[in-house]
Each structure stands twice: as C-alpha cells, then as structure tokens.
C-alpha cells in the first residue's frame, strides 16, 4: 500500500490516536484542552531528535515520545487542578501558543525549517517501505485504543469518569479527583506524544505548522463530532474529519476552493452537532428507548407534613 491511499490511511490512524487520547481528557475527566497539538508536537520533536541523534529504534523512539508527552500532559494537569472549565480552556490555548512558539524558534527543533526524520528500525531492520510503516502504525494505533478501552473499563478509569461527572460527589465517596485529572492528562499526553513520533516517522519531515492551535481545534472537533465520553465516538470523528475533506478534493477542481470548503464544512458540522446532536455521532448508536414513566413522584407532601404536626 503506498502513495495517496497509504498516506491518507496513515494520517487517519494518527488522527484516531489523537482523538481517542484527547477523549480521555474531554470525555472522561472533563478537562477541556485546546493544547493537544502541543503534546503531539512534543512527541514528534522528541521522537525525531532521538531518531536523528541517538537511535532510530522504534521502541526507543516511541518510548521517548511517550514519556515526553506524559510529562507535557502532567504539566498541563497541574493547570487543570487549579483552573476549571472555561478558564482552563483559555489557559490551555496559552500553553499551546507557548509550545508553538518554542517549536518554531528553538534551535534544536530546526526552527521554521523543521527537521528531516530518518526511517525507524525494528530489531535492526530499517522500516522503509510503505507497507512496513503502515503496519507499525496500525499496531501502535491498536495499542493506543487498547489503553483507551482499558481506561474506560477499569476501576481507576471509572473513578476518573466519576470525578469528571461530579467532582463534589466523587470526592465525598473517597475518590481523589485530582489524581484522576492528573492521570487522564498524563495518559492523553503520552498517547498524543506517540502519535507525534509516528507522524514524524511517516512523513519523514516535521515543522511547527503541523502542531499549531488550529490542529488542536481540529482534534477537539473530532472528539465532539464523534461523541465525547464514548469509546467509538472519537474513532468515528477522526475518520470523518480526516477523510471527508479529502473526498471534497475530488469534487472541487480549484484547490483554493477546497480549502475554503473544508473550513466552512468543519464550522457547519460543529454548529449543527452542538445544536441537534450534542452527544455526537456515537449518540445515534446509544440505546435511546422512550422516556421511562416516572412512578414514585408524590403530590401530597405538603398535606402530609401539615397533618403530621
């Protein structure tokens, strides 16, 4: 598999990792972050620098990117504990802008010129063919999804979700909600870091424009469109947001028009989803029986109270 289809598949798999990892923060811990592209960038640059200066071994590169992303996520979580909701959203934009500036201006990142990334190796074999690189990416994506699934279905993950649903109640039942936010953010950062390393390897070149604020917005759109707080939602969202713009390219001859249409389409879909289907596309698959009748509601409380005295 190679060429255009191979590249589209690679970009889609990376988007799946990014959306599923952001979902741990947005959908489970309710940390609304617009700094996910910075975690993605931290992983990409870490992976690229390790591959360039130390070893192109895929385990070392992915492990380093994972660790760097986790550190980034933990730093971000430090903010999330002290600042909540819309205030954190604004703070995360600030974090994103700072990181983008660093990516663009540090000597080690190659500045605006970016970095060329060598092919990775697995057990000493250089992974140069398109099929090999897609296979590695598919395995990494499967592992990332496995982690996301385990978080959703583990006691520890349920505590994260409980804290996201209602911090006061979760805390009153003995859950350390701060720990939940820290771990959700660290894991999300780690997975985004690995996605970054995979991107650097797939594209063989990175520069700061890939890890800008608009990328964070697009990842958030994937989560929201697909359905935050579900396992399949971010996967659906990532596929749709990545593939539909490409399909548009087939129908629109002028590339300038295509870019404009993509932007308009993102905006339109987000507005429509928020208005008519805030649970995202995954919400359509959720069991939605008729509202249950509400037995047990009383109407004579006041009468009883007065007669009691």
């Amino acid at each position: 598999m190679g060429g255009y289809v191979g590249e589209l598949l690679a970009v889609t798999l990376i988007a799946v990792i990014l959306a599923s990892s952001l979902n741990l923060m947005v959908g489970y811990a309710r940390i609304y972050s617009l700094a996910h592209a910075s975690m993605y960038g931290i992983g990409a640059y870490t992976g690229a620098l390790i591959a360039i200066h130390y070893t192109p071994n895929v385990f070392v590169v992915c492990g380093s990117a994972l660790l760097a992303g986790a550190i980034g996520g933990t730093i971000l979580a430090g903010l999330a504990i002290r600042i909540r909701f819309e205030y954190f959203l604004v703070a995360s934009i600030g974090f994103q802008i700072i990181m983008q500036d660093l990516f663009n201006n540090l000597g080690v990142t190659g500045g605006s010129g970016g970095l060329s990334v060598p092919a990775l190796t697995l057990f000493g074999i250089q992974l140069t063919s398109s099929n090999e690189s897609i296979a590695v990416l598919a395995i990494v994506t499967a592992i990332a999804l496995g982690v996301a699934w385990m978080v959703r279905h583990s006691p520890w993950g349920r505590a994260i979700i409980a804290g996201g649903d209602d911090e006061v109640a979760a805390s009153a039942f003995g859950m350390r909600t701060h720990d939940g936010r820290f771990s959700a953010s660290a894991i999300a950062g780690a997975l985004a870091g690995v996605a970054g390393a995979m991107y650097a390897y797939q594209m063989a070149y990175i520069n700061s424009t890939t890890f800008a604020l608009n990328e964070s917005v697009v990842i958030m759109a994937m989560v929201i469109i697909g359905g935050a707080g579900t396992f399949v939602g971010p996967i659906i969202g990532a596929v749709i947001v990545t593939v539909i713009p490409e399909l548009l390219g087939f129908f629109v001859v002028n590339p300038t028009d295509s870019g404009l249409l993509q932007t308009l389409l993102y905006g339109l879909i987000l507005v429509i989803m928020m208005r008519f289907q805030p649970a995202g596309l995954a919400g359509f698959f959720r069991r939605s029986g008729p509202p249950r009748e509400t037995p047990g509601i009383e109407s004579d409380t006041a009468t009883k109270q007065e007669s009691a005295l």
Partner: peptide
C-alpha cells in the same frame, strides 16, 4: 444530596461499582 449528584455518564451498575471499588 438533595439534587442526587449521580454520575450521569455511567450506567446504574457503574454508579454503585465505582463507589465500591473506591471503598
């Protein structure tokens, strides 16, 4: 709580389970 404060994105079973797992 007066306003119940259940864990809204979870199932009924998970609401009980998560408390038990913590306890």
């Amino acid at each position: 709580y007066q306003d119940l404060r259940l864990f809204g994105s979870m199932t009924v079973r998970e609401n009980v389970q998560v408390v038990m797992e913590t306890s």
